[in-house]
C-alpha cells in the first residue's frame, strides 16, 4: 500500500515535469539535454536585453579562438511587441532558450533534432524542416547564415552559424540555437493562446498558467512602453550609457609601447553599458519619438559601441589573449 502510494506520487511528479504539459518542464528538459551534452548551463543575464544573443556569453564568447559551449534561458524584452495582453502570441517580454557551441560541431543539426526529441517532438511523426533564414543584427554588427526550424509549418527555433560579431570575423565559427520557448510550449501543449500555457504542469488547484505569471506584467509594461516611459530621461540615459561605455573602454586599455593597445581590463563592464544603450533605444523606439532618419543614426551609435567592446574583448584572456 505504502509502496503503491509512493509510486503514484512519483509518477505524478514526473508528469508535472512532462515538457508537453509543463512550461517549466520544457525548460528543464532542454537544460538537462544540453547539460548532458556538456554545455555550461548559465543563468539569464541580469540586464534587459532584446534577445539571448546579447548575453555576453554569446556576443563576446563567440569572438576569439577559445572553445565555448553554453546554454541558458534569457528573458528577452521587445518593448514594441507589447499588445496589452490582448494578442494570443505577441509579448513584450518572453523567454528564449539559447545554446552556443563553438566551434560548431559537425553533428550540430542532429544534436538539435535530438533536443526536440527530448521535449517530445518525434521526427517520425512531425515534419521538421530547415528553411533558409539569414540573420543580421545591425546593432551588434553581426551576421550569420542558417535557418528557421519548422515543425509542421510552425517556426520553433532559429539556427545560425555566426560569421561575424561586433564587426569581427568569427573563427572558429559558433553555432547558435535559439528556441522560442513560448511558441514551442504552445505547440507541444496544443494551446492557441500563450496565456493559457500550463506553467507548472499541475492540473489541480495548484495549476499555474502563463497568464497567472505574466498577463498583468504584459498590460503594465505595454502601457509603460507605449505611453508613459519617460522619454526625456531615456534620451539622457542613452547618452549616459554611451559615454560610460566609451569611458570604461578607454580606461580599460593597457598600452605597452606608446599608443599600442595591448590588453584590455574592462571589456565586460563596458559591454554592459552597450546593452543598456541598446535597450534604452528600443524603449525610445517603442514610444515613437525617434524619426526614421534618426533611427539609423542611433543604431549606428550602438553598433560603434558593440564594435569597440568586441575589440576590447579580443584583448582579454577570454578573448584569447
Amino acid at each position: 500500500m505504502a509502496e503503491a502510494n509512493l509510486l503514484a506520487s512519483d509518477r505524478s511528479r514526473r508528469d508535472n515535469l512532462d515538457p508537453s504539459r509543463s512550461f517549466q518542464g520544457l525548460i528543464l528538459a532542454l537544460q538537462q539535454y544540453w547539460a548532458d551534452w556538456g554545455c555550461v548551463i548559465l543563468q539569464p543575464y541580469d540586464m534587459e536585453v532584446g534577445a539571448g544573443t546579447f548575453h555576453p556569453a554569446t556576443t563576446l564568447r563567440a569572438l576569439g579562438p577559445k572553445p565555448w559551449n553554453a546554454a541558458y534561458v534569457q528573458p528577452s524584452r521587445r518593448p514594441k511587441d507589447g499588445r496589452y495582453g490582448e494578442n494570443p502570441n505577441r509579448l513584450q517580454h518572453y523567454y528564449q532558450f539559447q545554446v552556443i557551441l563553438k566551434p560548431s560541431p559537425p553533428d550540430i543539426q542532429e544534436l538539435y533534432l535530438d533536443s526536440l526529441k527530448a521535449i517530445g517532438i518525434d521526427s517520425a511523426l512531425h515534419d521538421i524542416r530547415f528553411v533558409e533564414d539569414d540573420w543580421e543584427s545591425p546593432t551588434l554588427g553581426a551576421w550569420g547564415l542558417g535557418w528557421e526550424c519548422w515543425c509542421d509549418g510552425m517556426e520553433v527555433s532559429q539556427f545560425t552559424y555566426f560569421q561575424q560579431v561586433a564587426g569581427f570575423e568569427c573563427a572558429p565559427v559558433a553555432g547558435e540555437l535559439t528556441y522560442g520557448l513560448e511558441r514551442l510550449a504552445m505547440y507541444v501543449q496544443g494551446v492557441d493562446r500563450v496565456y493559457d500555457l500550463n506553467f507548472n504542469g499541475r492540473d489541480d488547484d495548484k495549476k499555474v498558467t502563463y497568464g497567472d505569471v505574466f498577463l498583468q506584467a504584459e498590460r503594465e509594461y505595454s502601457r509603460h512602453n507605449f505611453e508613459v516611459a519617460d522619454t526625456a530621461m531615456l534620451f539622457e540615459q542613452f547618452k549616459m550609457a554611451e559615454a560610460a561605455c566609451q569611458k570604461y573602454l578607454a580606461a580599460g586599455w593597457q598600452e605597452k609601447d606608446a599608443g599600442k593597445k595591448e590588453r584590455h581590463l574592462m571589456a565586460l563592464p563596458a559591454y554592459d553599458q552597450c546593452i543598456k544603450a541598446s535597450h534604452v533605444f528600443n524603449l525610445l523606439d517603442a514610444r515613437g519619438v525617434i524619426s526614421v532618419t534618426e533611427r539609423q543614426s542611433y543604431i549606428l551609435r550602438v553598433r560603434e559601441l558593440a564594435k569597440a567592446c568586441g575589440e576590447a574583448w579580443l584583448a582579454t584572456e577570454g578573448g584569447g589573449q
Binding site: P103, S104, P105, D134, G144, L145, Y161, P172, V173
Partner: peptide, 16 residues
C-alpha cells in the same frame, strides 16, 4: 550567392 564558414575550417560553402 552567399556562402559561409563553419566549425574550425576555412572552406566556404552555402551551408556546411
Amino acid at each position: 550567392p552567399k556562402s559561409m564558414r563553419w566549425g574550425s575550417g576555412r572552406l566556404t560553402w552555402v551551408r556546411p
